[in-house]
Simulated assay, not measured.
Amino acid sequence: MDDSLSLEPWAEGDFWLLLRKNEPVMTAHLGGPESDAKLQDRQARYLALSAREPAAGRMFRVVADGESVGSIGFWERVWNGEEVYETGWGILPEFQGRGLAARAARALVAHAREHGTRRHLHAFPSVDHGASNAVCRAAGFVLLGETRFEYPPGHWHASNDWRAALV
Rank of each mutant, 00 (worst) to 15 (best):
E67Y: 00
G99W: 10
H115C: 13
T87M: 15
A131P: 13
L100M: 13
A105K: 06
E76K: 08
G70R: 09
H129W: 14
R103P: 12
E83D: 13
I72P: 01
I91C: 01
A101H: 06
W75V: 07
G70C: 02
Q96A: 05
H115Y: 12
V135S: 08
V109H: 12
W89Q: 00
A64K: 10
A107K: 07
A105H: 07
H122L: 15
A101K: 11
W79K: 06
F95D: 01
G70D: 10
S126N: 14
G73Y: 07
G116A: 14
F74K: 09
L92T: 00
A131T: 15
L108Y: 08
W75D: 08
F124W: 02
P93H: 05
V84Q: 03
P93A: 11
R106C: 03
F74H: 09
H111D: 12
S71C: 01
F95M: 08
P125K: 00
R98T: 13
G97I: 13
L121E: 08
A123F: 07
A123H: 02
R103W: 07
R113G: 05
F95T: 12
A107G: 14
N133R: 05
R77K: 12
G73F: 06
T117Y: 09
A104M: 12
I72Q: 00
W79V: 08
H115M: 14
L108W: 13
R103L: 03
W75E: 09
G70N: 05
V109I: 14
G66D: 02
G73D: 08
E67W: 01
A107V: 06
S71N: 00
Y85R: 10
S126H: 11
V127A: 15
W75H: 12
F95W: 12
L121Q: 06
R98I: 05
G81F: 04
V69I: 10
W79R: 06
W79M: 12
E94W: 02
V62M: 06
V135C: 10
G66A: 04
R98D: 10
L108P: 01
H115G: 13
A112G: 09
V109E: 04
A64C: 07
T117K: 13
L100F: 13
Y85T: 05
S71K: 03
I72T: 01
V127H: 04
A112Y: 09
L121S: 14
A104K: 01
D128A: 12
P93C: 13
G97N: 08
G66I: 03
A105L: 00
W79D: 10
R118M: 15
P125F: 02
A104P: 05
G90C: 01
S132M: 04
D65R: 03
F95I: 07
A101C: 12
H120G: 14
A123W: 13
A123I: 04
V127I: 15
H129M: 00
A102L: 07
G97Y: 06
C136M: 06
F95L: 05
I72C: 01
S126P: 01
G97S: 11
F124V: 11
E83Q: 14
E114Q: 15
A105C: 03
D128K: 04
V127P: 03
R106H: 02
A131S: 14
E114A: 09
R103I: 04
F95Q: 06
H115N: 15
V84P: 15
A131C: 07
S132V: 01
V69R: 00
